[in-house]
Nucleic acid binder design. Sequence first.
DNA 1: ACGCAGCCTGACTGACGGGTCAGTCAGGTG
DNA 2: CACCTGACTGACCCGTCAGTCAGGCTGCGT
Lengths: 215, 215
Amino acid sequence: MKGATKAGAPARPTAEAILSAACRVIVRRGVEATRIADIAREAGTSTGTVHYYFETKDDVLLAALKWANERPYDRVEELLGREADDLWRLATLLELSIPYPGPPRDEWVFVLELWFQILHRPELRPAGESFDSRWRGYFYDVVRSGAESGAFHPTAPVEEVADRLVALVDGLGLKSVLGGESWITPERMREILLRFAADELGVDHDELARRARAG
Amino acid sequence: MKGATKAGAPARPTAEAILSAACRVIVRRGVEATRIADIAREAGTSTGTVHYYFETKDDVLLAALKWANERPYDRVEELLGREADDLWRLATLLELSIPYPGPPRDEWVFVLELWFQILHRPELRPAGESFDSRWRGYFYDVVRSGAESGAFHPTAPVEEVADRLVALVDGLGLKSVLGGESWITPERMREILLRFAADELGVDHDELARRARAG
DNA sequence: ACGCAGCCTGACTGACGGGTCAGTCAGGTG
DNA sequence: CACCTGACTGACCCGTCAGTCAGGCTGCGT
């Protein structure tokens, strides 16, 4: 029954395939509304198989959330490591922070879902803090590097600038993910972010915007 | 049974008492984990009574969320209307934005819960946008007023400053509500906010901090 | 060929919880 | 006092779902 299962094709649902399916369901319906049966269907397998790989529903969902939160970092690090120009790296970092429709928006959904879980489950806090400090680290590093090299002329201490940038990204990104026309759109978020970074770091706004578009 | 019901004392659980009970449960367990039975127990009544006042569970929870999100505004407006000094009003607004443990933190929880609901239920967006634009309006008004009176010397357009302040409050408040030691604490949030506002509006930081403490 | 082991299935179970409704009771009203 | 009304109760019904389990399938080792 069903499509030809010919050959030993690795079409079998592995743990990773289940996580990936879980993520698709989470983006569509949210963590709370996600059923084991949904995940199984999305993965093209049975509920039994999901339980074969993960003890409980909570295990699948948490694993999926952590998995999804982890993935963007590889790409970010690859991108940031590629180039030494601090202005370009800052612009790229900012651009990557924006929840444009599609994959970027989806990645933001996982971040929000994790935050929400943490709100009433303190035991998850360390996971959230770990992602957050890594993210903040990128901003800190690029600002410090740019300040030392003279590319930036920050008006406040590096620590302070990093905290401001992260908070701004969080606040704007959140509203932007929630959507709506009267709220902040990704485009508006981009404007605010770039203008702020330019003001705060004493760099040319148009120059920064140009690098961002290229990223 | 129970305390004396003498006289026509309105000790009966009204819709408002149920909302208030629902809010207490939501703060403790979160919207998703809140059961009708929990609300009834908290209100000292029965599940039937909850359904007597509200059609469905969803109705109670949404009503409770909106009710809880509404309440802080009265206090804010009362406070802001009381004094004409823009520096004082700005300081107060910032101080009120901080989720200190206790009631302020609880109010933030309701904000987050509403945001989370909106994430997967677009029909709630208008409610969120309405609260948000009111909140943003306070910042816009005070910044514009201060700029016009010469009390502030903003380095960016008023619109832009208001958006930056709101985003900063959202981003910092969020992390602050999530708690933890390595994350932003309310005290750290206060520092960042006040320093930023002082920088951005060209006012004396210590002066601003002094007004805030008084609020 | 045969059997075993690991992978997978999906019908099933039991708990949980939202919503219902027949009934109780206190406080009017005639 | 007889009757009514409407707030309130809580046991019950019933759908939903996480988690289980007995059985099948497939491929590998012998």
